[in-house]
Design a protein around this nucleic acid. Sequence first.
RNA 1: CGGGGCGUAGCGCAGCCUGGUAGCGCAUCUGGUUUGGGACCAGAGGGUCGCAAGUUCGAAUCUUGCCGCCCCGACCA
Length: 442
Amino acid sequence: MRLSRFLLPVLKETPAEAQIVSHRLMLRAGMIRQEAAGIYAWLPLGFRVLKKIEQIVREEMDRAGGVEMLMPTLQLADLWRESGRYDAYGPEMLRLKDRHERELLYGPTNEEMITEIFRAYVKSYKSLPLNLYHMQWKFRDEQRPRFGVMRGREFLMKDAYSFDVDEAAAKRTYQRMFVAYLRIYSRMGLRAIPMRAETGPIGGDLSHELIVLAETGESVVFCDKRVLDLPIPDADVDYQGDLTPIIDQWTSVYAATEDVHDAARYEAEVAEGDRTETRGIEVGQLFFFGDKYSAPMKATITGPDGVDRPAQMGSYGVGVSRLLGAIIEASHDEAGIVWPEAVAPFGVGIINLRQGDAECDAACETAYAALAKAGRDPLYDDTDERGGGKFAKMDLIGLPWQLIIGPKGLKDGVVELKHRGSGERETLPLGEALTKLGPGRP
RNA sequence: CGGGGCGUAGCGCAGCCUGGUAGCGCAUCUGGUUUGGGACCAGAGGGUCGCAAGUUCGAAUCUUGCCGCCCCGACCA
């Protein structure tokens, strides 16, 4: 992408409304624009990161046996009356009527709809397990939206819903999602800790929240700091095999949100030096809730014994849009965002220090073409801005690599290659820089 | 939803108390000089001062109502 053909409205000054660093940086880097309280437009740069995060979630869900689909944002009120949640949900649910006075709602979650779909098509235990997911915009009319995309009213969530023949099978599904979630956040450069949690309005009796430790988080959490060093399962983890050892390893170390915190157990189990009481950002949650929806909505399946029973269900959410905020909270410096490679909006930024200089332009075009061909997704700053603005802008948007090409260096046959995360720079011939950035290279 | 605050150019703000020609910095545009880490000089464009009613000869400024947004708290992916 050429910067002169992109929309990147970076701000030098910090907008007054933004309090926390991720919100400030997202506004300054031209990633989002607020359209109403808790409602944001995703500008091109932010949209690219959103898509990267979606894709990681998709790949790991598919690996763990998930099947992607897409449900609508609008749902019929009557569907929610079946589960009893239409009245129970409260003012957070946005309710509206169409021209025929039919009552609709903008979905805050999709348990009812997926259960309705499931019961329409699936009758036999032979069709199970089934794990359906989608990534769709949700709306929850928060009383006080804040912190940018971390707590918006409209947000993008990946929500998966599992159906199993009995509780034992459902818990194996829960374990698969547990492992998939460890991998999802890890691939984004985040350390997300599964913590015992309350089940909330979704309901059920087994739940973990995935928490990224951060001072700006909204939840108070307690954990054993040894949980930070546990290994993340490899990509070739056998989802058909027994995952219990992995789950036991992660759940045997104390980690709980404030709501379910057990001070006595905490002090008994965790060595004093390992006790960590801090704040965290919730980036996902796992629920097992059995027949909470399948029983009232009559989503039954016929077992091998010929008897009909409600399917055993679970649901598994990832706050996709919230993750941008969480990643920035975890990865930034004074100059701006430092994107983990896997979610960076572009792989490398090319800075042309003397736009209009024939030799300089030619070298930049060579680099741009080569990096694009190598799949490095370059962003070429071909504007004629002068001074340090190009450097500051590139640092702000946080691309992993910067290739800096100017007339002085070219006179000696060299360019500068800068790594954003470490701040390391090296001077080398353009060809070597391109080899170094070539396909498959970090 | 309780408490507090703010709406003036794209962004950040002053002006309001004490009514009288709408300002500053950044950004944008033009011309020139420049060019290696948030350039310089000269010029230009851009505003129904959130909306509505009221008071007044006259309202960004005073009064009332409404709308929007932010912060603290309680609640939530």
